[in-house]
Design a protein around this nucleic acid. Structure first.
Length: 803
DNA sequence: GTAGGGTTAACT
DNA sequence: AGTTAACCCTAC
């Protein structure tokens, strides 16, 4: 249903557009090709209409090119009126291609296509949009009443015949065109249907009611769609359609531009322009039309048309470009109509001027069933390829297609893919989110370009059915994509890489393989994301648990220390108020930290403070000890990122057991000690002490560290806040350490210590330092002179005699 | 750099 | 809860 819903509008539009002769058959075919879903029953009517248009083009072309020729009346081949237009088209193409494009146009006269067209024109059901519109206008269905007003159809009666000239009313344009370049008129004159820039633009410029057609503004009420509908009812083949008219507005602009171009630089200029712009003039349909003289003159619809309709554009260079152009471009169907007017005036037919085959426009017009090689060149567009695909199917030599279109779109697709590849490399994986749809699109484009018969539904011959490689269009041993609904078949050699087989040995085409890979990738990515989340949750819980534990310990000693300090001698320096202030400060800090901890340590996984208690303690101590500055809590906050970054660095140093990192850490902390302001700033950023150690305050920042370097040099003491070696090696995130990990003294260390003490007993200056150096190869990393001293003290306590 | 008191975590 | 080794802090 969803698919139908999305496809239906396209079908409707195509169906409706098919009713208007301004819309070139090639455009319709393009549209059909771009709406692969149209191939189901829903799009049957649309396909029929497009096919009918195609037949009309074919007839028109034939009339133009076979003037004067008359087949034997009794040799006329009639088509079964009950046959689908689609099938007729297929048959015709089959015949043409089976004859290897050598079929003379006169031969085509044997087909009584006109009768068939007439029959079909009369019998084909009204397009869905028209039916809808009629239903709205009739107002029978209550549900449609609301649409009546919204669609502007309520005023249809008054404006049915109105031709607003003020705002580029679409119908006005259509009406203007109606009388100037209609299919019927072309038929009547016996000319072909190709709308040359001249005649079309002439129509647009001169014959059209006004120049106000250019939509300077657009009044919805003037859409006048009812007018279109009315006309549409009157003549399904007339050109009254808002959409078409609108298209013609565009056409007009472009044609004028083209004309201007032409006037200034002539064909040559156009050609140059075309070549320069890499325009894929003479696109697929154009080539198709040349193949069978089927191309109804088509109004330019796009930029490509402007150049495509220039004579002399068809040359090898352009063709070469054509080969490499983007499918989208090619699909624009820059019609390269084998235009000849009845007077033989060369109009738009892009002919390879360089060719010496003598094919002039007239020849193209009359017998433009071109020689195989030329046809090969020319039939390179989408439709052409489609036809070629079919023709190839029917022609054993395959000369028609080989070397031309098979490489056309694949290259483009390939280029596209390469571009995307680059894009993917430069973008992060999220780029894959849209990649799948891109792949699907590319695949569609590829299939469309390679096996367009099945896509455009003009013929349902499928490469799969034909056992032709979709890459090279040749038969042979083919790999068939195992993905459901993937019709891709290809030679292994055409893959350009190793084929993708799944575990079961099923082959998957590059599109499906890539698509699947993306799916897998995204799936795994999602899993990883979830796992990471779980880990974060787990760690958060763990840290939270420990944090509580830590927090008690952090707070208690601090309080103790604070009390101690309050009871300290220094206290005499300060009055009670001061002490009280400090207490308040601590509370304030804690409160503030409660609020700000998330700010300061946004990443809960990162230890923001090791030594949190110490730092706090020191901070408080600094405060108590008279650092009045400390009372001024600086508003500036250290960058959390900096702090965290430093913390990581410190942690890394710890893991590496790097003394340098220890000392750096030491320096930092020391610096904080010596710079109360910084400490305060730090404090502000510190997470609440009572919260969790995982949110411990970051002990340092780079600035502080740098500013204290000199001082650190002086203070060589290694009393330091080092990272303890842990029994367990925690990985990320690290659990903040408040103290060094205890490093038990080994007996060897003790021995070397004793030895050192003995040896340097007489030395008073730097004794412990010398001992440390003496036993440096034995003492564990991280041992400091203080440690040695303490240890010796312990030894002495334990066994005073040994001292 | 050292001394010495204090603190802490592990252990009993 | 007590003990203890290691660590911390401060004064000098």
């Amino acid at each position: 249903m969803a698919s139908s819903a999305s496809t239906l509008p396209w079908i409707w539009v195509i169906e409706a557009l098919a009713g208007f002769k301004q819309v070139d058959a090639s455009i319709l075919i393009d549209l059909v090709k771009r709406t692969p879903e149209i191939s189901d029953d829903l799009g049957k009517n649309a396909r029929e209409k497009v096919s009918l248009r195609f037949l009309e083009s074919f007839i028109a072309q034939r009339i133009g090119s076979t003037k004067g020729l008359s087949p034997a009346p009794d040799s006329k081949i009639e088509f079964d009126p009950s046959e689908n237009c689609e099938d007729v088209v297929r048959n015709i193409l089959h015949e043409i291609t089976a004859s290897n494009l050598r079929m003379d146009k006169a031969e085509t006269l044997k087909w009584d296509v006109e009768a068939f067209i007439m029959h079909k024109t009369a019998s084909l059901p009204q397009c869905a949009l028209q039916q809808l519109k009629d239903a709205i206008l009739e107002g029978i269905h209550p549900l449609l009443s609301s649409l009546k007003e919204r669609s502007g159809l309520s005023i249809s009666d008054q404006s049915r015949n109105r031709v607003p000239a003020d705002d580029g009313d679409l119908n006005a344009v259509a009406r203007g065109l109606d009388g100037s370049c209609s299919y019927d008129r072309t038929l009547a004159t016996g000319g072909n249907l190709t709308s040359s820039p001249e005649n079309l633009v002439g129509s647009l410029r001169g014959d059209l009611p006004n120049r106000d057609l250019l939509p300077s503004k657009r009044d919805r009420s003037d859409l006048d769609t009812e007018n279109l509908a009315a006309r549409s009812r009157e003549d399904q083949n007339s050109m009254d359609n808002g959409c078409v008219s609108h298209l013609h507005n565009i056409k007009k602009l472009k044609h004028e531009a083209a004309l201007t171009n032409q006037a200034v630089g002539g064909n040559k200029m156009s050609e140059d322009l075309c070549t320069r712009n890499g325009q894929q003039e003479g696109s697929d349909l154009a080539k198709l039309s040349e193949m069978g003289s089927l191309e109804e003159g088509r109004s330019t619809e796009n930029d490509h048309d402007i150049t495509s309709e220039r004579p002399g554009l068809r040359n090898d260079a352009v063709d070469a470009e054509l080969q490499n152009n983007h499918p989208e471009s090619s699909c624009n169907n820059t019609t390269v109509p084998p235009d000849t007017f009845e007077d033989g005036t060369q109009q738009d037919l892009p002919v390879n001027e360089d060719k010496d085959d003598g094919n002039n426009i007239a020849e193209m017009g009359t017998s433009d069933i071109t020689p195989p090689d030329e046809a090969n060149q020319n039939i390179c567009g989408d439709e052409a390829r489609d036809k070629c695909g079919k023709s190839k199917l029917n022609t054993s030599n395959g000369a028609l297609l080989d070397g031309s279109y098979p490489n056309n779109f694949p290259d483009e697709t390939k280029d596209d893919m390469q571009q995307n590849r680059g894009h993917e490399m430069s973008s992060d994986s999220d780029g894959y989110q849209n990649e799948k749809s891109d792949v699907a699109l590319k695949k569609r484009t590829f299939l469309s370009s390679q096996c367009t018969f099945s896509e455009d539904s003009l013929a349902t011959v499928d490469c799969t059915e034909l056992n032709l490689c979709m890459k090279c269009n040749k038969s042979g041993q083919l790999l068939v994509c195992s993905a459901s609904s993937c019709p891709l078949v290809v030679h292994q050699s055409c893959l350009g890489s190793e084929p993708n087989f799944d575990d079961s040995g099923n082959f998957y085409c590059p599109f499906c393989a890539y698509s699947h890979a993306i799916s897998t990738y995204l799936e795994v990515k999602k899993k990883a994301s979830l796992a990471r989340k779980d880990l974060a949750t787990f760690i958060g819980l763990e840290n939270g648990h420990q944090g509580n534990k830590f927090s008690k310990k952090i707070l208690r000693p601090e309080q103790n220390q604070l009390d101690d300090n309050v009871n300290d001698n220094n206290r005499t320096k300060y009055n009670g108020n001061h002490v009280k202030d400090v207490s308040q400060y601590r509370e304030n800090v804690e409160d503030k930290q409660q609020v700000e901890h998330s700010l300061s340590c946004g990443n809960d996984n990162l230890p923001c403070q090791e030594e949190g208690a110490t730092v706090n303690d020191r901070t408080l101590r600094d405060l108590m000890e008279g650092n009045k500055e400390g009372e001024k809590i600086g508003p500036e906050c250290l960058s959390a990122g900096t702090l965290i970054g430093h913390q990581i660095e410190a942690q890394a140093g710890c893991n590496l057991d790097d003394d340098n990192s220890f000392s750096r850490e030491t320096e930092s902390v020391r610096a904080i000690r010596r710079h109360p302001e910084n400490v305060i700033q730090q404090e502000v950023l510190q997470p609440p002490i009572t919260d969790s150690t995982q949110q411990g305050a970051c002990p340092s920042n780079i600035d502080v560290e740098e500013s204290s370097e000199e001082e650190n040099d002086k203070r060589t003491s290694n009393y330091s806040i080092r990272h303890r070696r842990r029994e367990k090696q925690y990985t990320y995130p690290a659990i903040p350490q408040l103290r060094r990990r205890k490093v038990p003294w080994t007996s060897v260390e003790e021995e070397i210590l004793k030895e050192g003490v003995k040896r340097f007993s007489s030395v008073h200056d730097r004794k412990w330092k010398r001992i440390l150096e003496f036993g440096s190869n034995v003492f564990q990393k991280g041992r400091t002179t203080i440690d040695l001293k303490d240890k010796w003290r312990n030894i002495c306590r334990g066994s005073p005699k040994s001292k």
